[in-house]
Design a protein around this nucleic acid. Structure first.
Lengths: 300, 300
DNA sequence: ACGGTTAATGCTCATCTTGAGTAAATGCTG
DNA sequence: CAGCATTTACTCAAGATGAGCATTAACCGT
């Protein structure tokens, strides 16, 4: 076992949604995800990540899941092999009034093309059009590249698949459109500036994962407060999915999964119109076993 | 960065299906998955796994995917922290006539309860009934345990979900029904004997992963020879899923995905009855981009 | 050549699921 | 009280899914 030149760290993608705005724990210049050495004493990695996130953000993680282990050479500047074990964590943090709000970054500032919530209405999508022009230019002469762009970025009437965030990042990286690309051509302010090491890739991995998971497991409840209206639930899903969903169908999907939520009996008058019933997640959802098999809809 | 007492290894779950029989690269006493130290020179882990599998089995891996990284303390016998990065690999190996057939184990000898292909017909399922009795005994007095058993093992008319193989293993482990459980009660020949370290858990992780993947990506083609009949394709899916599927519906699903396979024009007379058309996968499927979005059916 | 056997292949049908839209209900505000 | 904003209740067509019946095409032994 050659452990010379080997070191390991934990990297966390910690997500929170505050009133429809998705946030990720990331700060600094260049922006970096929270990361730290793997301590030898730690019993389990999972527990290590939780402790680590609490120290960093002051919030408890409701949900923790391993993402991916990066260990390729050339990831770090020095000549040792760095093994990064990355985790996804979800929390109910309220960013606005939190202790250190500057620890958080707006998720879609770091991955702007992944937010398409503005699309249905108006239509002006400067960034999207700029990316499309750049990608089509990059694809000239390669049918394969063109197909890949069409598929991932939903050109030519193809459906947009939210869960392909990682593949999109990798494509943009290859096409030299993100700041981290080797000799990046840096298209306008696509990503503002580089993130530390390969942290943006790790972030994209986390976003892909939670979006995929949303389709077959109700992980959003880890992002919701104790009680909430159905609209608030929907907006949280939309914040993660980066897309709007059909309101009536969303409600139907939620209600069909009896076992998922139950009305508290209270109503909320916050929104101005007809007051909305407040709901809470049923106890059974909070236990692992029932989570598998219930789901919330993601649009195609 | 504390790298004292830290070492890393690769562990591979390499699967192959030969004429409807699923195999996994695992040998020795106790049986062990192929594993080896992470070499410092290796550029990428993925490449390391491929090379490693070629050395061990003589076969090339068509598909490689990272599974999970195990790094909890107490996994190994000595007092260092062992980080195991596990991978799933698929290959077209033909076990019977291979160089070292004894390197392979029949998949369902190691996870017998995951094969339910015999169920529809006869009905005699000694192992299943034995497990059910043991689990119900274990659940006495705990509604939560009972619910979990019912859900994972499809008791009381619940549907069997092939992709929950890992969760089932973990449940059996808790219930002390597998050989690796601490102070195992060892129910009959449930698992014959322990596997090395936590290798059976890693194997179950791999099985869960490929079964889940099958539902939204046509990964089976990595297990098929160049040309094949639709029945052969179906039997390979069934081997991995551990379940039979409705023949006509399976064909419909395959044909509907027009991008997936195309007839070669040849026919096979191997089976005795009406000769079957031979098919091959379309070129587009072999490239990453098209794989996302096509799928084969798994029964509920 | 012939009836029997074994699969492959073609078609139908009821049921669910999904996407999308219309309309009614409810409480607040000026 | 009228108008407004939003929640909530239904409807409908299209597509996907699960299950079964019927037909066709080869081979096999006699």
């Amino acid at each position: 076992m050659s452990d010379v030149g080997l070191s390991a760290e934990l990297v966390a993608v910690v997500l929170a949604v505050d009133d429809g705005h998705p946030w990720v724990l990331a700060a600094g210049e260049p922006p970096a995800l929270p990361a730290g050495p793997l301590r030898v004493e730690e019993e389990s990695l999972q527990a290590g990540v939780r402790e680590f996130a609490r120290e960093h953000s002051g919030f408890d993680l409701g949900y923790v899941e391993q993402l991916y282990t990066f260990a390729d050479l050339g990831r770090s500047s020095d000549d040792r092999r760095m093994v990064s074990i990355s985790y996804l964590g979800l929390t109910r943090a309220q960013i606005a009034g939190s202790v250190r709000p500057t620890d958080w970054s707006a998720l879609y500032d770091l991955l702007p093309w992944e937010d398409r919530r503005h699309l249905d209405a108006s239509g002006a999508d400067r960034l999207g059009e700029e990316i499309e022009r750049a990608l089509r230019r990059w694809s000239i002469g390669s049918e394969e590249r063109l197909d890949r762009c069409r598929f991932l970025f939903a050109y030519d009437e193809r459906p947009w698949r939210p869960d392909l965030a990682l593949q999109r990042y990798e494509l943009l990286w290859e096409a030299r459109l993100v700041a981290e690309s080797p000799s990046a051509g840096s298209i306008s302010a696509l990503t503002a500036g580089p993130m530390l090491h390969d942290h943006r890739r790790i972030l994209a991995t986390g976003l892909s994962r939670i979006r995929a998971k949303l389709q077959y497991r109700p992980v959003i409840f880890e992002l919701m407060p104790e009680t909430f209206t159905l609209l608030a639930l929907q907006e949280t899903v939309e914040a993660i999915a980066g897309q709007h969903v059909h309101k009536q169908n969303f409600r139907r999907a939620v209600e069909v999964q009896h076992e998922l939520v139950e009305p508290t009996g209270e109503v909320s008058h916050e929104t101005g119109g007809r007051p909305a019933k407040l709901y809470r997640f049923r106890g059974s959802v909070r236990e692992e076993r029932a989570q598998v098999g219930t789901k919330l809809p993601l649009p195609r």
